[in-house]
């Protein structure tokens, strides 16, 4: 009886957890700075602070997405300055992976133009690549030296629609990139997992008495 309770309670909690997660919204790109990600502006090997002026921070931004690529990402501290005043900041710890890094920021409720975005890379292990586009030195991002161009930056905020309301779009998307294509793919996925869970639970009830 106790095992039945554990199974029922655990699976119910899992279902509730999934439902709650689906009520949340995915993060979307609210705006970009319009700089294409076309070139590597150079690797960084040691602790460095890079600032890029002439940015516009949209309202209610929850994170800033920076074009950094690393095998094991360093700590990234971000400060957004209006003049000399820091208006928001955030930090992403070490060990992130991929070709971009999202750094959470304290949201501001108004659009702020003419800000400078400064990022500081700490605890670097390996090389960190910065991506963006070549520009004239006058508007290029600056570290200890001027970079060859500007960084491609995206500003993120939670979408208005939740995962639940976007479910049909996600299912449509899931059906593409495979052969044969189609939303039919959802049925075997759900069926396989339901069968696996049912078999697992049945075995537990039989063996763990």
């Amino acid at each position: 009886m106790r095992i039945k309770l554990v199974l029922a309670g655990g699976l119910a909690l899992t279902a509730i957890g999934i439902f709650v997660a689906l009520l949340h919204s995915p993060t979307t790109v609210a705006a970009t700075n319009g700089v294409a990600r076309t070139v590597n502006l150079g690797p960084v090997e040691e602790h460095e602070r890079i600032c890029q002026a002439g940015e516009t921070l949209p309202a209610d931004i929850s994170a800033i997405q920076l074009p950094l690529a690393a095998v094991t990402g360093p700590q990234v501290d971000v400060e957004v300055l209006a003049g000399a005043r820091v208006i928001t900041r955030g930090t992403r710890g070490t060990a992130w992976y991929g070709t971009v890094v999202d750094v959470p920021l304290t949201p501001l409720h108004r659009v702020t133009a003419h800000v400078t975005v400064c990022l500081e890379l700490r605890f670097i292990t390996g090389l960190v690549f910065i991506h963006g586009s070549y520009t004239s030195p006058t508007i290029a991002a600056r570290g200890e030296r001027a970079l060859a161009g500007r960084l491609s930056i995206s500003y993120l905020r939670p979408a208005r629609a939740s995962w639940l309301t976007q479910a049909s779009a996600v299912i449509d998307h899931l059906g593409l990139g495979r052969a044969p294509s189609g939303t039919w793919i959802v049925f075997p996925i759900v069926l396989l997992m339901v069968c696996a869970v049912a078999l697992g639970c049945r075995l537990i009830l039989q063996e763990l008495r």
Binding site: I3, L7, G10, T14, I18, A21, G200, I204, L208
Partner: peptide, 20 residues
Amino acid sequence: PVVGAAIVVLLIAHDIASQL
């Protein structure tokens, strides 16, 4: 056995969350 069942349910939840 109760804890064993709880461990398996936890891992099922981990698996489903990872798929999502």
